[in-house]
């Protein structure tokens, strides 16, 4: 049986999710910020964490953006292979949803139409970056993310040699966070993609940022790696806002995929405490 999904409905969903993501921080982030406030030893670090918690509360109450960099929109769409989209073009519907959210929701427009020549602002924060995946079923799952560039700019990838192993991956993650210092607005959510190809590792790193904080990877080896990486990152002492302290990472999430016998791709995608994402199924 084929199920019909109207393009209009997709547009409305994207718009609603983006407003929600920009105004309301996830309860998982808030919970982790609260725990961090208890654990932080630095007085400056504590006051920064308190400001962040207050900030997210104000944004939710007043329905204003929690951060002025309302990001570039990234979508992960899982389309059921028994669903059919009618009444319009899918990509246009998504971008119309972005446009309406950013213009009607008083969100900043931060996208330029050409990365190299002219860099003219598109004026409505379109286009979104869309990742589409076909899955069984007749529904469509849409996950949106508003990705700020203070943290995106501090992200890095590397094609390691297979012999580099766990040590190589760990060193690369630590080095990336150390280099980033205060720039990506710590405390951070750190996404790590390992395996696949260059592009797949980057995609996995981004997907891992959508995972609920406090939920480890389902595989025990990767769950242990996540724990180890979080401890190591917090030993750097960068602290809230980079001013020194115990809490640099709220979470380190790792995702992996099979890879080639000759390779070990790894990408570290950094997200700030304004870790904005939301999801819905139609």
């Amino acid at each position: 049986m084929i199920r019909e999904i109207k393009a209009e409905k997709i547009k409305d969903t994207v718009k609603r999710l983006l407003l929600q993501a920009n105004y309301e921080i996830g309860t998982d982030v808030l919970r982790e910020l609260g725990l961090s406030l208890k654990r932080e030893e630095s007085a400056t670090g504590k006051s920064v964490l308190q400001q962040i918690i207050d900030n997210h509360r104000i944004a939710r109450q007043d329905r204003i953006a929690m951060c002025q960099d309302t990001g570039m929109v990234v979508l992960f769409v899982s389309l059921g292979q028994e669903a059919i989209i009618t009444g319009g073009d899918f990509t246009e519907a998504v971008n119309q949803g972005v446009k309406e959210a950013y213009t009607e929701g008083y969100l900043r427009k931060s996208v330029v139409e050409d990365p190299l020549f002219g860099r003219k602002n598109t004026g409505d924060n379109t286009p979104a970056v869309i990742h589409l995946e076909l899955v069984p079923g007749d529904r469509i799952k849409i996950q949106v993310m508003a990705k700020g560039f203070g943290s995106e700019n501090m992200s890095r990838g590397k094609m390691l040699l297979p012999s580099a192993g766990v040590q190589g991956v760990t060193d690369f993650v630590i080095e990336t966070v150390q280099k980033a210092g205060p720039n990506p607005c710590p405390p951070l959510v750190i996404g790590v993609g390992i395996g696949g190809t260059l592009d797949m590792a980057a995609r996995l790193a981004k997907i891992s940022l959508l995972r609920e904080i406090g939920c480890p990877n389902g595989d025990i080896h990767y769950a242990a790696l996540e724990k180890e990486l979080k401890e190591r990152v917090n030993e750097l002492g960068i602290g809230p806002a980079g001013l020194g302290g115990r809490i640099t990472a709220l979470a380190v999430n790792v995702e992996y995929y099979p890879t080639h016998i000759a390779g070990l791709p790894v990408v570290v995608n950094i997200n700030c405490h304004a870790a904005r994402h939301a999801a819905a199924e139609i």
């Binding site: 944004a59 007043d62 329905r63 204003i64 953006a65 929690m66 951060c67 002025q68 960099d69 309302t70 008083y106 969100l107 900043r108 931060s110 203070g150 700019n153 720039n183």
Partner: peptide
Amino acid sequence: VGPAPAPPGHACGAAGPTTST
């Protein structure tokens, strides 16, 4: 800073610092 647009009733939209580097 590059502030977000001001919603009605606000003098300024969200306005946090950008990377100084």
